[in-house]
């Protein structure tokens, strides 16, 4: 699927360089609005001639492990540090994917990351956009990176 390799490259690059974790990609798929349980999602909007949304969805357990590795400090619950780390991760992933899709730097602009978390929620993108999600695994835990894109011609 288009963009799946870009997601894999960006995610592996950021996880190995910033978080010091090797993550293994699985097969890409098209996510619908499945429920997310006891999870946290970092999402960021892309605006400009190409519009879209990038999201990273993690179980609480994976988010705590990633934040601990990312910040180099122990975190035990989904607190402000974790929310900021997962939002920042979405921001870095979006920045990396932008640099692949828009090397000139003029076509895509990033908005502000948000973190959504809770026991039970769904996230779905509403525009008529192309969507691809890649699952990743590390240390027996998993997360998903989802990209939605729409080109305005």
């Amino acid at each position: 699927m288009e963009y799946a390799q870009d997601i894999i490259d960006s995610t592996q690059d950021i996880f190995s360089s910033m978080i010091m974790l090797d993550v293994t990609p699985g097969e890409s798929f098209k996510r619908s609005d499945e429920k997310l349980s006891n999870s946290i999602s970092g999402i960021i909007g892309l605006a400009g001639n190409t519009k879209g949304m990038l999201a990273i969805h993690m179980t609480n357990q994976a988010a705590l492990a990633v934040t601990t590795a990312f910040l180099g400090m122990d975190v035990e619950e989904i607190d402000e540090d974790v929310r900021d780390a997962i939002g920042e991760l979405a921001n870095m992933l979006a920045g990396s994917i932008k640099s692949i899709l828009d090397p000139g730097g003029s076509d895509i602009k990033l908005s502000m990351p948000s973190a959504i978390y809770g026991e039970d929620y769904t996230i779905d993108c509403l525009a008529d956009a192309q969507s691809v999600t890649v699952p990743f695994a590390f240390d027996g835990m998993g997360f998903m990176v989802e990209l939605q894109l729409r080109k305005d011609s």
């Binding site: 909007g45 519009k51 949304m53 920042e88 908005s111 948000s114 959504i116 039970d120 509403l126």
Partner: peptide, 18 residues
């Protein structure tokens, strides 16, 4: 510039900003 809208629904969620 605007991005595209996203919906969040559920019985228990919180949205936070940086």
């Amino acid at each position: 510039d605007l991005a595209i809208p996203t919906a969040v629904a559920g019985t228990s969620y919180t949205i936070s900003a940086p």
